[in-house]
Amino acid sequence: MAAGKGGIGILAVVLVPVLVVMLSMWVLFFGGDSASACTVGSGTQINVDGIAADAAVGAYTHDQLVNAALIANAAVTLGLPAAAQTIGVQAAIGESTLRNLDYGDGAINPDGSVADSIGLFQQQSFWGSVAERMDPTSSASLFFARLPGVAGWESMDPSLTINAVQGNADPNYYTQFRADAVAIMTFLTGGSPAGAGGGGCAVSGDAKALAVNLVAAMGAGKLVLAEDRYAAEIRGVADGSASSICGIDVRILQVITIALNNFGQVGVSDLNRQCTGSIEGAGTESAHWINGGGHAVDFYSLNGHGLTGCDTDSMKLLSILDPLVPAGSRAGQAQCRTATYSHITQFQDTTNHLHFDVGFTDGPVANP
């Protein structure tokens, strides 16, 4: 792989076993990325010839989708499970945007040599011959041949798994490409859309279990609370110490979990205002406050992008939530959106976050 993507060049071969141990310990203490439970894959060969010439998934067009299919098929040929298909595509997006490049970024390896990375996976010469690295199927096979050597890879954060195989410096580098990989595999396999419940992403209905997982996500840097007082609310639910006015509606915990299942990092700026004594905006009539509080969540960022309620990430999250949340759930920032929803009603709110609440409905969050 190219050192410009955090690569460590030739030393990767030596350091991979060490990285595997370190990353396995990271997963043991902090848990894997919840998105790893959202893998879409057929586990069978994809008909490459059946990909239409005008096919597109977002910015990815025909040739890139063909390369993704060839990667997925290589995993099947080697007898790997469906999860490997998505991981391989995710890796190649991060390395080459699924383009079979005959050049690298010219980065310098730790030993002073110039990286000679090429192909979909930007593999250097120690991976194989030029012909192998420039052939989509062969280069994918080189990647997948090393995958089983990553202990516990099927339960690890996908980015950490890829990092252990590729040997790049930043273990979280590939997280940003997860959603695209899932979307591409969904298209290629005709699977269910990525999201809560999609691809086997069932969401627990147990508040404490949800909160424990969210605490782990905070420790891993996947869930970021703008203020520690709101992080303390989640910790209180997790350890059972939350008072009657410091709880969080289980459905809000589910909504946050769904967001984590679909985005590499989630930023939350508000939860239970009654617990913190905050009276702002709608005051004591807010879903943040009523009935003990904690029936609303304000998201301020997704994947590190600030939210307005009408940006691409906000719209994506709302489209994922709409079929799952009970009718009467509400989203703020209506003034900057033209979209309509089946279950979500909308109201005007300041456009520096995405507000979502279930404070005025009794229905449950559904799992498909």
Rank of each mutant, 00 (worst) to 15 (best):
D135P: 06
S244E: 15
G119H: 08
L101N: 13
A196I: 08
A3H: 00
L324D: 12
L98G: 02
N213V: 04
L354C: 08
F29E: 09
G205C: 06
I71H: 09
N262W: 11
A217N: 14
A115D: 02
A181S: 10
L120D: 02
S96D: 00
S329Y: 03
V76D: 01
A207P: 03
S34C: 00
A107R: 12
D239V: 12
V325L: 08
I51G: 03
L318C: 13
A202L: 07
N100E: 14
V297L: 13
S138I: 00
S301W: 09
V237A: 10
D313H: 12
I344W: 11
G104Q: 03
V16S: 11
F177V: 10
G112N: 01
L214C: 13
V21F: 03
A55Q: 02
N100L: 14
V358F: 09
S96I: 01
I344M: 09
T284W: 07
V215Y: 09
A259S: 05
A53R: 07
L223Q: 02
V89I: 04
T86Q: 14
V76F: 01
Q274D: 01
H355C: 09
D111S: 09
T61D: 12
S24G: 09
L210Q: 10
G240T: 13
K5D: 12
V182I: 13
S204V: 06
A216P: 01
G236K: 08
V21W: 03
Q335H: 11
L120S: 07
L78H: 11
I162K: 04
G267V: 03
I258C: 10
G363D: 04
D311T: 07
S301Y: 11
A68V: 07
N172V: 13
V89N: 03
